[in-house]
């Protein structure tokens, strides 16, 4: 028996919004410690690693480890049927063909129940290599989203250059160039602070198309963490409230 309940479906709705444009289907690994998804997009250009800890749920029970292949599009459709204040319960038997989603509206005697067929998925065994990053930047997630949206108008790629002084985003195309520089702030730990931990300066270019997928996670938290090193994928990390995180990996563009 697997059962996981959140009193506010809002967080799960936001998680689905953060992955639905990147993943068509994914295996949800459910264990005693929580729910984990590690999946690549169809083009194998990016990887999404998501974790929801069992202690973050209002109720969590997982008697046997389960690997459930789910259609992200269908799951997203189902979660759109919940209002943000609904309690959501996910439930499955030990050898499931389906997963059940139940929505309870507080103060109302209404329960909605949706059953979704699981998918048999080819298991891609994916692992994330341990990496020491040259630069780790924490900045307001809304600021990052705005920069990605703004600069995407001017080119296919965004170049991120990070030094001790600050982080510079730039794009260039036929119509002109765009540059946005952020300096490190005096305060750290505030929602609007910019902090940079740097071993070595980096300058790397990334696809706007994918960065625009990643910023769909912006409503999940106030700060985003960018980890950069030469020749390894960028990590773009958002906390999922107090209960987990979502990390996106993307290889830098290389000169032909």
């Amino acid at each position: 028996m697997f059962e996981a309940r959140l009193t506010q479906s809002a967080i799960l709705k936001k998680v689905l919004d953060a992955i639905k444009d990147l993943l068509t289907e994914a295996t949800f690994e459910c264990t005693d410690s929580g729910i984990q998804v590690q999946a690549m997009d169809n083009a194998h250009v990016s990887l999404v690693s998501m974790n929801l800890r069992s202690d973050g749920f209002d109720k969590y029970r997982c008697d046997r480890n389960l690997s459930m292949g789910m259609s992200i599009a269908v799951m997203s459709k189902i979660l759109k049927c919940a209002t943000t204040n609904d309690t959501v319960t996910m439930r499955a038997v030990d050898n499931p063909d389906t997963i059940e989603f139940m929505f309870d509206t507080p103060g109302k005697d209404v329960q909605a129940q949706y059953e979704m067929k699981l998918i048999n998925m080819d298991q891609e065994h994916l692992g994330i290599p341990e990496t020491v990053y040259s630069c780790v930047v924490k900045m307001p997630s809304q600021e990052f989203a705005r920069i990605v949206r703004d600069l995407s108008q001017f080119g296919e790629n965004i170049t991120i250059a990070c030094t001790k002084e600050g982080i510079k985003f730039s794009a260039a195309g036929d119509t002109g160039t765009a540059n946005v520089k952020l300096a490190q702030t005096a305060d750290s730990g505030e929602s609007d602070s910019v902090t940079i931990e740097m071993q070595e300066s980096v300058k790397l270019s990334f696809s706007c198309r994918y960065l625009n997928f990643f910023i769909k996670a912006t409503p999940l938290c106030e700060q985003v963490q960018l980890s950069l090193s030469n020749d390894v994928p960028l990590v773009c990390e958002f906390n999922i409230g107090e209960i987990g995180h979502i990390k996106y990996y993307l290889a830098p563009k290389i000169e032909d």
Partner: peptide, 14 residues
């Protein structure tokens, strides 16, 4: 021009 690397080999566990 710039090209995008496929990451499957980077993340795949054999």
């Amino acid at each position: 021009g710039k090209s995008q690397k496929n990451l499957l080999q980077y993340f795949k566990i054999n």
